[in-house]
Amino acid sequence: MERRNFLRVAVVGGAAAAFGGASWGTAFAATAQPGPSPYGALLAADANGIHLPVGFASRVIARTGQKVAGTDYFWHPAPDGGACFADGAGWIYVSNSEVPLVGGVGAVRFDASGAITGAYRTLSGTNVNCAGGATPWGTWLSCEEIDYGRVFETDPWGVRAAVARPALGKFKHEACAADADHGYIYLTEDTTDGCFYRFRPTTWGDLSSGVLEVMTGANDLVDGPVGWARVPDPDGFPITTRKQVPTAKRFNGGEGCHYAAGTCWFTTKGDNRVWSYRPATSTIALTYDDSLVTGTPPLTGVDNITRSATGDLYIAEDGGDMEINIITPAGVVAPFLRIAGQSSSEITGPAFSPDGRRLYFSSQRGTAGNVFGGITYEVTGPFRS
């Protein structure tokens, strides 16, 4: 049986049992399916090469190797994971640099009108900083995507020096998400046999010490309860963290991670899935799986993820059609935007401004198709409220 059909039977059958006799059609709707976008169809590409719905517009914020407008900061190569932080009436967008040796984080500052008022470095001298996550206390966690990679806690304002946080484990980090409701930092691992982790600080708001755990469960489990086990040696040497707990559940290429409304959503690029973990019940489920889609999957190359205040998930593609797709709370998946003419790139760092009216993201390699071609964009328009 083909993987697509096998998973369709296995997941839908399991969901039907969980629904206690509900129809298979109802159970199947538990994973997102293609449908009309709440924003309508995409229009022809604009002057920046972005296909957007009616009412939306894009602008270029920064280009690798060029000064950010009105500043002396040269935008870094390979812009990757990012987040926005409130700054008085304005905000700051931070962006990782996924290159070796220099790596680090850059930031762009905006005033209340959206005008750029500054740009600067907040971290340098690190390796392949891929994604990360924002904390409720106003710092950005920048993750190294290398073997024995570290997490650095950085100051979006660039005032305080960045600090390595080895208690969060040394492994091939991708992204992380802070769960203030339950006191955890969740972390993904970008390997084909990667794990999903959580870190409980000794004191919430202080990441210098705490307990690192790994999710446990059957590797084929896609819907149901999971467990957690302590990682004996977060340093991962000589035994890597993902191999220290025999019952650890494996995920195929952990990518984006975002916590909101009692749920941690995370993605796995190796099998084009969006997962949800509910800490209140310690259960996981599939929000999206391209092998369970009826017809042609609109979302492939599943990568970075964020969420709007109204509950829509926005998932960026690494490859695919170079799209950001939306998954609505009703379970509809549809393209929100598409970048034309950049098939050798990937979309990274989607993040909303604090007021939810602007979406930032990057094309990591841009039209050049290499790390020196990065372009960072802003999209404005009638986002749902």
Rank of each mutant, 00 (worst) to 15 (best):
R8W: 14
V11F: 01
A18K: 11
A18Q: 10
A18Y: 00
G21D: 09
A27P: 00
T31L: 00
A32W: 03
P38I: 15
P38S: 14
G40N: 04
L42R: 04
L42P: 05
A44P: 04
A44K: 06
A45L: 07
G65V: 00
K67N: 14
K67W: 00
V68N: 05
G70T: 04
T71W: 07
D72E: 14
Y73A: 14
P77Y: 02
P79K: 08
G81D: 06
A83T: 09
A83G: 10
C84N: 06
G90N: 08
Y93D: 03
S95Q: 14
P100V: 05
D111T: 08
Y120H: 15
S124E: 12
C130E: 13
G133I: 12
T135Q: 13
G138S: 07
T139M: 04
E145C: 08
G149Q: 11
T154W: 02
P156K: 06
W157S: 11
V159Y: 01
V159D: 05
R160D: 10
R160H: 11
A161W: 03
A164R: 09
A167Q: 03
A177L: 14
H182T: 11
H182M: 01
G183Q: 10
G183S: 07
Y184S: 03
Y184K: 02
I185L: 15
E189T: 06
E189L: 07
D190I: 11
F199P: 07
F199I: 08
P201G: 05
T202M: 01
W204I: 05
D206I: 04
L212N: 01
E213A: 03
T216R: 12
G217L: 13
N219R: 10
L221Q: 02
G236V: 11
F237H: 13
P238L: 08
T240I: 09
R242M: 14
K243R: 14
P246K: 06
P246W: 05
P246Q: 10
A248Y: 06
R250M: 06
Y259A: 12
T267R: 03
T267A: 02
D271R: 08
R273I: 08
Y277C: 01
P279S: 03
T281N: 04
T283W: 02
A285R: 09
G295M: 13
P297A: 13
P298S: 07
T306E: 08
S308L: 01
D312G: 01
I315M: 10
G319T: 09
T328Y: 12
P335V: 05
F336D: 01
G341T: 10
R358Q: 08
L359C: 09
Q364L: 07
T367P: 01
A368Y: 12
G369L: 12
N370L: 11
G373N: 15
P382G: 04
P382K: 05
S385Y: 06
S385D: 05
